[in-house]
Design a binder for these strands. Structure first.
Length: 901
DNA sequence: GAGCACTGC
């Protein structure tokens, strides 16, 4: 069916783009924006902004409405059979987070995963650094394989793990040596150290309670344990407590790593309540800018980045007896790197008095991969607890009205269908890729209200994405008004980061926008991709948080099967230079031999090494040019929580005498845009107008500095006013209120994102503190910004460009074959100076330089010449290395035992 | 004169 034929009027009038046969966005002519959230909407009950344009959509959907859903759902046993649905078909059901056909979901410890594995001999080492290789240090092998802590906790004789050696060929043989449940009950743990105070707090039953005793036994007996449990199983709150009750915390605190700050803070709060203590007592958390732990703390919830920084200071992490990596399936850069480091830690602490225990917790069934990585560690499965979700797919044979590629169009059709067929009061969550699409769909849905039957509720579209102003974001969490159905149209922010109550239906476009790093040219590519199967499952799961739900997938089951199983790990799609710098601080010498869960491409590794060498942070060892060590400069870079080129800017600024200004700029660069906006055109114009006020001919970095200086000024005045007011005995409460209101007004007047401003200022303080620790002398350049521009140019010289008048484009100085444009959001996009340096190179429809500063070519020329020299050697060496690897390859295929670098 | 998912130190 011809999509354009179906929706002639609004498609052309309201949308800035359409999606073509190949899935690419095609630009349409711009339109006049109409507010999506008209105040009158709720009083009138209907929005009428265009007459008669929707007649086609309502016609096509009325026909569909008459075709009844034939549901053969057997509600008693929670199973679903093939649904005869004219709209979409479903033969599967997502129960407890698991897609099932018929069988009931029963998750417990699967015997086949309980393997007894021959442990390789453990080397005893006398080394101080984590990544020392065999040739770097003396290695002697102990005669007896290392034993995990004796599993005598239960008082039950248990076969020894290491003595039940079985041959390699029979590894798959299963030996169930776990004592039976009855057995456990009759012999409870002999010395429970902490027991939740059930008088103060009784928590509801959790699925994890069923396997509690068994888990406790495994926690005590295994060196490494993998816990697989779906959402709602209670693993994130209970496993750390079980560790404490099993007496593991006696030898050191339990660290629990989370990928997000909110998770770390809220989990700590929850567990503190359950254990009847305060935050900072037995339970605490540590995230950036906030450390709520004390010497008493036994369970520390932390973000994975914090643990990584802690490892830089104390590589063996000997404060901790156990590290629990939560949400390992998300494969964040930090958690992947942590797993690699912790494995090394474990090897080195194995023979000590305080061996390190590792617990990997993950939601999806990627157990095999983690298990192989951790030398066949035991896996325990825990059931999840979410409500059943019916999953529908588009069936191209039946659903002829769907476009084959235009998921934005399909979204609107699907919302209308759901709205007219699902019970009133069931809110909808739609997943799309970006603000532009989201605003377009919100607009179209608002217009749909005009063509709804009188009996139907009002559709209340609510956009939700990160760049949206915070007040607007809050709309998504507001209670749905009577007589309306809330339709939240969101990016993947609603996948993990926020949970919206009341969602009963999810519509999944199957698309996501993601950034990948092209290492060879150092370009970020932002592109729409298909989601992974795991991601689709995660999205569907958002419908079953409060009650049974439904998920409509705007793609066929065949397409779904073609999706990747898991998300691409972050480590495979980002610039590795910052990570390598950290790992080298820990003693890694040859990144090519790094044993990661998913090893990056050799080209990406080489690109990061080249970048670090050119920045002067590392240098090859003369005896073996495959190995690198940190230079003094590289060592000081590690102290800052910054990408290496930004740290280099600070280093240069110290030389130039403008460290104060450089810190302000670099801090602001670490946050998202300080000017707040969204895809609301009216606001965009305002942002644009106000941004102009700060514009300079020197570029965006100086603009940023001017903005920060202005806000500093404002805060100084505000603070002195508040102090003065305090002397006049104003109450603290009213002072605080006035203070906060003044900030809000200032941010509103200047279109500044208050949250981002706050973050930037906290990062500024953090960087200042580090600079003081590093004995960096304080210096400022006053109003002469040349020194700052030079520091930026030197630090980021790899990003310097020369204007090509003939082409009317810029050429990258280190690689003139690459041509690019200055992004129109930059204040230099029109003036086009001869030489510039940029912060970031982003490929969307064109190759754009973001955040641009005017520079002098002489500042960077010597560095570029030097870089070209280094690159030449580098290329020759990497070619040689690839050849060597190719020759050694057959041998290298052998099963890996001890991993050395 | 274009358009930008999400985290984290």
């Amino acid at each position: 069916m011809d999509v354009n034929g179906n929706f002639p009027a609004w498609k052309k009038k309201k949308r800035k783009f359409k999606i073509g046969k190949d899935g690419q966005k095609i630009k349409l002519k711009p339109s006049v924006p109409i507010s999506v959230f008209p105040k009158s909407a709720q009083t009138n009950g209907v929005i009428r902004q265009s007459g008669g344009q929707e007649s086609n959509i309502s016609a096509s959907l009325t026909i569909k409405k008459k075709k009844k859903f034939k549901k053969n759902k057997n509600k008693q046993n929670g199973t679903a059979v093939e649904m005869k649905d004219e709209f979409m078909t479903s033969s599967v059901q997502l129960t407890n987070g698991v897609l099932t056909k018929k069988a009931k979901v029963e998750l417990k410890t699967i015997p086949s995963l309980l393997r007894v594995v021959e442990k390789p001999a453990t080397p005893v080492r006398s080394i101080s650094n984590l990544f020392a290789s065999q040739s770097d240090s003396k290695v002697s092998y102990s005669e007896k394989p290392a034993l995990p802590i004796k599993p005598s906790l239960l008082g039950t004789p248990v076969p020894s793990v290491s003595k039940t050696t079985i041959s390699k060929s029979s590894v798959a043989r299963t030996i169930a040596f776990t004592p039976s449940k009855d057995n456990i009950k009759s012999t409870p743990p002999s010395t429970p150290k902490f027991v939740p105070n059930s008088e103060k707090f009784t928590r509801p039953q959790l699925p994890i309670d069923v396997v509690e005793q068994q888990l406790m036994y495994e926690l005590a007996s295994q060196e490494t344990l993998i816990v697989i449990g779906e959402t709602g199983s209670g693993k994130s709150t209970q496993v750390p407590q079980l560790c404490v009750r099993a007496g593991i915390a006696e030898k050191g605190a339990i660290a629990v790593t989370e990928p997000r700050r909110v998770a770390a803070v809220s989990l700590a709060a929850r567990v503190a309540v359950e254990m009847g203590t305060d935050i900072g007592g037995v339970v605490g958390y540590h995230v950036r800018f906030e450390n709520a732990t004390t010497h008493k703390t036994k369970i520390e919830y932390m973000t994975d980045g914090i643990v990584l920084r802690k490892a830089l200071v104390s590589p063996l992490l000997d404060k901790y007896s156990t590290v629990i990596i939560d949400e390992a399936h998300e494969r964040s850069l930090h958690s992947d790197v942590l797993m690699c480091i912790l494995k090394k830690c474990q090897e080195q602490r194995r023979e000590s008095k305080n061996p390190l225990r590792l617990i990997i917790m993950s939601a999806t069934l990627q157990a095999d991969k983690f298990q192989a990585y951790f030398d066949n560690a035991k896996v325990v499965l825990v059931a999840g607890r979410t409500f059943p979700i019916e999953v529908f797919h588009v069936n191209p044979k039946i659903n002829k009205s769907f476009s084959s590629t235009d998921y934005v169009y399909n979204t609107v059709i699907c919302v209308k269908h759901v709205h007219l067929n699902e019970p009133k009061g069931h809110d909808i969550l739609v997943f799309l890729t970006g603000s532009e699409e989201i605003e377009a769909v919100a607009h179209q849905l608002a217009e749909l209200n005009g063509s709804l039957p009188a009996s139907a509720d009002f559709i209340l579209p609510v956009p939700l994405y990160a760049a949206l102003r915070p007040e607007k974001q809050k709309e998504a969490f507001r209670k749905t008004p009577q007589g309306a159905r809330k339709v939240i149209i969101s990016t993947n922010i609603a996948e993990t980061s926020v949970t919206i109550p009341g969602i009963r239906v999810v519509i999944d476009s199957g698309k996501v926008k993601s950034k990948r790093f092209e290492a060879t040219n150092r370009i970020d590519v932002l592109k729409v991709h298909n989601v992974s199967k795991a991601q689709a499952k995660q999205r569907a799961g958002r419908a079953g948080r409060d009650a049974p739900g439904k998920c409509y997938r705007l793609y066929s089951r065949e397409d779904f099967h073609k999706f990747e199983t898991e998300n691409m790990p972050e480590i495979l799609r980002c610039n590795l230079s910052a990570t390598f710098l950290e790992l080298m601080k820990l003693g890694m010498k040859n990144p090519h031999r790094l044993q990661l869960l998913d090893p990056p491409e050799p080209e990406n590794i080489d690109a990061a090494l080249l970048e670090l060498t050119s920045l002067g942070a590392i240098k090859p060892i003369t005896s073996d040019r495959n190995k690198f060590i940190l230079t003094d400069m590289g060592n000081s870079f590690c102290m800052y929580p910054l990408p290496p080129d930004h740290a280099r800017v600070l280093f240069q600024a110290q030389k130039e005498g403008c460290i104060m200004e450089a810190i302000k700029i670099i801090a602001a660069m670490q946050t998202d845009a300080l000017f707040s906006g969204g895809s609301d055109s009216k606001i965009d114009l305002d942002v644009e107008r106000i941004r102009r006020r700060f514009e300079t001919r020197e570029g965006d970095h100086i603009t940023l500095l001017k903005l920060v200086l202005l806000t500093n000024n404002f805060f100084d005045q505000l603070n002195s006013k508040t102090e003065a007011d305090a002397r006049y005995n104003k109450s603290n409460k009213s002072l605080e209120r006035e203070y906060n209101e003044a900030i809000r007004k200032f941010c509103n007047d200047n279109m500044i994102n208050e949250q981002h401003l706050k973050t930037a200022s906290m990062i500024e303080d953090q960087l200042k503190e580090i600079a003081v620790e590093q004995n960096v002398p304080f210096s400022t350049c006053g109003a002469d910004f040349t020194k700052i521009r030079k520091s930026i140019a030197v630090g980021m010289f790899l990003n310097s460009c020369e204007y090509d008048r003939q082409e009317d484009r810029y050429r990258l100085m280190i690689n003139p074959a690459i041509t690019l444009n200055i992004h129109p959001s930059s204040c230099l996009s029109r003036s086009k100076p001869a030489y510039i340096v940029f912060s970031e190179l982003m490929k969307t429809n064109d190759l754009y330089a973001l955040q641009v500063t005017l520079i002098d070519a002489d500042w960077v020329r010597p560095l570029i010449t030097e870089h070209k020299k280094i690159r030449k050697n580098h290329l020759a060496e990497s070619a040689q290395r690839i050849q060597q690897i190719a020759q050694v390859e057959p041998k290298a295929k052998k099963p890996k035992l001890n991993t050395t670098l």
